[in-house]
Amino acid sequence: MPSLRSAQIPGIPEREVTDERLFLRRREFLRAASAASLMAAGGIAFGETAEAALTDELPGVLPAPPQFRTDEEQTPWSKATSYNNFYEFGTGKDDPAARAHTLRPRPWSVAVDGEVARPGVVPIEDLLRPHALEERIYRLRCVEAWSMVIPWVGIPLGALLARFEPTSKARYVAFETLVDREQMPGQRRRVLDWPYREGLRMDEAMHPLAILAVGMYGRVLPNQNGAPLRLVVPWKYGFKSIKSIVRIHLQEKQPRTTWNDEAPREYGFYANVNPEVDHPRWSQARERRIGGASGFSALFEQKIATLPFNGYAEQVAGLYAGLDLRRNF
């Protein structure tokens, strides 16, 4: 495992590489605005209501560089925001869209603590302020064998962690979702052992593909997709990408993670997308891509092959050199 110091923290991509698409869409925001300034502008970002969130466009997002984007057909916004697993709002796929309006994504603070030189409970505005928002167009592969292509807006996780100065003992990052039965009515039942917990090895967290997202499709993240701050780790099954984060804890030991606790035979700590290691109850070799097909044609869409590390093997396989991926699934 590379040490933190040697892990590469990505810089801000070249600003002069202006995407024509972005140019046509939003001439007035060609310069890269920082996350903080966008929130100051009009105060609409992280809107008070779900309706506002639907129209809250994030200005000045840096376009995704080629290594962080796929040109595959994107999942329509309507489907990416209506078909979700977010058990804090119920176990049905349509529960989050119907019920997540009770979540209040602002004010919001995140505790960053544990093995860091500068721990603190930080308001989300301060957490994001030094970073430029970047677009990342990633495949999202759910452990249930469906997938989407989503243009996220966020900041590199590694750059954020570096600001808190992890100590030499920081080998893992643990994340926790909010616990609040009023805002998250699904937590009134003990379907899972709340809070939802996830974790990464430090080198995974520092990998440039790993981001903390605050938006998607150029807009503020809708509540049902994990507002106001969620993890996106595109080479792992979707359940690793924890939503509505309130705590980031750096630690020496491997953290407990929710689905691994729930069913250790079925969900591993690593949960790297792997077509060769089946879930005990279903095959992981193929996936149903949720795309733009509508009406009856959607019924006859063929499943597509699942790729090792969800197609990001070239970038991340090196993290797992020498690790038996069958045992460490």
Partner: peptide
Amino acid sequence: RAAGGELAEPVEDI
């Protein structure tokens, strides 16, 4: 509803 394109994953729903 499936014909109207309302469902994200109609095969699963059916």
